[in-house]
């Protein structure tokens, strides 16, 4: 199936489904009582993204975007670190990548299959293509902006990302 023939993500997935998946992931992976709240706040000036690609009847990526400081706080929460333990850059990339991976895997499960999931990547988010091939939930975690974007593939899906180091 070519990109032109594939159904856009908006025909396959709605923001409520993305939210319900995040509702399941946040308390189990980020921590007890934690939630991704679908109420947008002002976007940060500087952002970092982690994403995984989905390849199958629908091709694209699931992208998690937030400020670097929010990524650091997410990593601390995922890793359950307490001061004076400090997470390093690799921990942050790894934790954000794993969040994107779990989001991506669960979103893949509600899309037409069979599909395969790529390994997590981190960097500047891939460019979005067709407007109708983007499903985005702008929200917040602990009052900080966080965006989950499910976006169709463009010709250059991985312009500036690097695979999350092990």
């Amino acid at each position: 199936m070519t990109l032109q023939e594939a159904q856009p993500i908006t025909a396959l997935l709605d923001p409520e489904t993305v939210q319900s998946i995040a509702d399941e992931i946040w308390p189990t992976l980020v921590g007890d009582g934690e939630a991704f709240v679908p109420v947008p706040v002002a976007p940060p000036a500087e952002v970092v993204s982690a994403w995984v690609t989905i390849t199958g009847p629908w091709n694209g990526a699931v992208v998690l975007t937030c400020a670097p400081a929010t990524a650091g706080a997410l990593a601390e929460s995922v890793l359950m670190t307490r001061p004076p333990t400090v997470v390093d850059d690799e921990d942050v990339a790894d934790a954000l990548g794993e969040l994107a991976n779990v989001l991506g895997g669960n979103i893949k499960s509600v899309l037409p299959g069979p599909s395969s999931l790529g390994l997590p990547q981190i960097g500047s988010a891939p460019a979005t293509g067709r407007l109708d091939d983007v499903c985005r939930v702008n929200g917040q975690w602990r009052g900080q902006s966080l965006t989950i974007t499910v976006q169709g593939a463009t010709e250059a899906l991985h312009p500036s990302g690097t695979e999350v180091p092990q």
Binding site: L29, V78, L79, M80, D91, D94, A95, E98, Q166
Partner: peptide
């Protein structure tokens, strides 16, 4: 391949009394 996930799973298993080792792939 995720250190975070290795740490999470390993930590739970240790709580259950397991001796844990890790591998990245």
């Amino acid at each position: 391949d995720s250190r975070a996930m290795r740490r999470i799973v390993g930590s739970i298993l240790k709580d259950f009394g397991f001796e844990v080792r890790e591998a990245g792939d």
